[in-house]
Design a binder for these strands. Sequence first.
DNA 1: AGCACGCCGACT
DNA 2: GTCGGCGTGCTC
Length: 815
Amino acid sequence: MNYAQIVLPLNLKGSFTYKVPEDLISQIEVGMRVLVPFGGKKIYTGIVFELHDIAPENFVVKEVISILDDKPIVPEEQIRFWNWLSDYYLCGLGEIYRFAFPSSLKLESETYLKLKPNITIDFENLDVNEMYLIQALEVRQLINLTDIEAFIPKKDIIKTINSLIDLQYIEIDEKIAEKYKAKEVAYVKINDEVLKNQNLTEILLQLKNAKKQKDLFLYILEKQTEDPDILIKKSELFEEGYFGNSHLKGLVERNLVEEYYIQKDRLDSYEGEIEEIEELSEAQKVAKGEIDVGFEEGKNVLLHGVTSSGKTHIYLDKIEDCINEGKNVLFLLPEISLTKQITQRLEKKYGRKLGFYHQKLTDFERVEVWRRIRQNDVSVLIGTRNALFLPYQNLGLIVVDEEHDSAYRPREVSPYFNAKDAALVLGNFYGANVILGSATPSVESYYNARKDKLAYVFLEERFGNVNLPEYELINFKEAQDSKKVSGNFSLQVIDEIKKVLEEKNQVIVLHNRRGYANVVECETCGYVNYCSNCDVVMTYHKAANEMKCHYCGQRASKPKTCPKCYSENLNERGVGVEQIHEEVSKLFPDHEVDRMDVDSMRKKFAYERLYEKIEDRETDIVVGTQMISKGLDFNHIELVAIPKADSLLYVQDFRAEERAYQLITQVSGRAGRVSGKGKIIIQTFNPEHSVFQLIKINKPAKVYKYILTERQKFHYPPFTKLIMIELKHRKEDKANRASQFLGSILRKYLPEDCVLGPEKAQIARLNNLYQFQIMLKLPRGKKYDEYKKLVLTSLKEFDEITAYQSIKKEVFVDF
DNA sequence: AGCACGCCGACT
DNA sequence: GTCGGCGTGCTC
């Protein structure tokens, strides 16, 4: 076994072959990190994916420089998982590696060199570069690879390091442990001296021209004297938004207040009361029993529980079971901001044995979690999709909550994969059970459950036997004709909202479109404002008073006159959530109306603040985009209004109906959680539309049956498999020609009706790249594997055309 | 992905 | 005469 296949953190196909030097053969194992030279002057941290003794013939192999781990950092199950992902989603292992690892575990620049202890160096036999390096190390002890570039020519770096390692003079040092800095929390207190020596009137006199500082000083003083044992966190001062950092700085500069830091063990054991898990209800017990049966049959489970049925409850129970068996749990969520409830409940129970892993952690925090998982020090890991790649030791259960959520398969991050499907496969490799849970399962999962590939567990009643919300459809056309509307709201909806507000309850208004107006159009010449980078009209945001491109983020000021014909006759068309918010505020001037969308939630803590406002019932009406369908579990929301429901359906996507159903149902679940008198009002021009009609009767099985029939009719998943290939280039004709060419190759191998396109993408230009798409509709089953191989062949054939190498190509399997 | 090599326009 | 633009090719 003197050759190794190494995966490098590069967006390159496959792995690279390296020779393992004699002295490393006994130590090297699959799953370890190694340092390898690459392309003349670079050193990368690679992962050993395979060991073999087949000498390559077509190129000269380089040698592994050194091994970075004493035991594999990627467990065998993960190796299989990476290979599966790469195979199934047609993506490179390098891409997966980049995605899976925190950067300080893979970056070459984080690698340091040091002198071996107790050595005598024979300077006579060293060349100039080797001498420089040794001398530098004698002064600095540790040297970063990028620093070496300062005194050794790039091309000689590797040679120099290699020979010094061979001579046993130097070695590789992993600096991660030392660079990891425990998180510190800032606290404030009144300066001790001040308390002893100065009298209060003097201080207040000093602050008489700085009212806020004075207030802040008094606030801190009061808190501190009230109970000296409770420390005052710096962050809590700013929570209200009344004080700012500048006020505190002022006090610190005057030496009145001191800032100090206390190291926080992020995973402090929870000190509050331990919450006993409430007993399961009868329905929940039945569901749990069914899950157990499913597991015994070796099946994974789809837990379809209507909103407020207490799915979390069941998860907790299964998590407990799993831990009692001595195994660990991975709990996946679509996004970390929604973790509040589940996290709090688990924290109370598992304290120290709980871990978090998600996109918002810093690199050190990620490495810390990696270490703990490797040491088997985490029983329950709560995380987002990237948590699938942690080096789990003894995984017994994976829970995928809100399995239908599209955040599990974002399109913009590579490698492209669906975390829900990946979790099923990972569970299989670990021999772990998997529960997919949702109030509105994806059509694919539902279908799999019906086909018995998943055990299907349906939890039909809300916890505590609370009634399900009631739906009402309002024909907006009729309302308009009989003049019973005000703007975008029918008088009936306005009435219903009034009623709820009178009872001091709360209302949600859903409108799933950002901004104020979709388009600003010139009445005179028809000019509309296009984004300069993309083929998209820009959306008008009144709150920020600017035009935004929702695809590339480009911003521009709102034109006062038409840039083309100088007419002042500009018209705003297409209703956005800001406009609905404005309308509602005007309709209910005596109530607190808040807006919740990505634009208004961008500020730090904006979400937390609004969350509390709603919880404290300061907010009467929340107007928001789909964001409000997630995580807002409050007890006093009694009405959900969807003024322009049709906009949910008119999206060019075969999943539009599924999405509309999911969104409406999810947001409905916010209403009447306790009272059981929740109501949903849907305003539409098409009350006869099947989706609305089926939602109204509130029988999920019928909705799925309808959607499945439609999908079957038009040959869409889950009855077929879709692969979408996207080609991008700065020059339109080049992108066009390339995609035509790829299309012709694909048609050569695949039946005509499998290949659709190429076509201009819906957004023909994005970030200055022209995009073309080819959609492959492939049959399921054995045929699929066969066809996919042919797709692979076609893609390879395409890659051989050198003229098209500058084309950016992306493949989305299970689009 | 990065990085070098190589071939054509605007500058000291 | 050179600096630097990005098209093309290669990396075990």
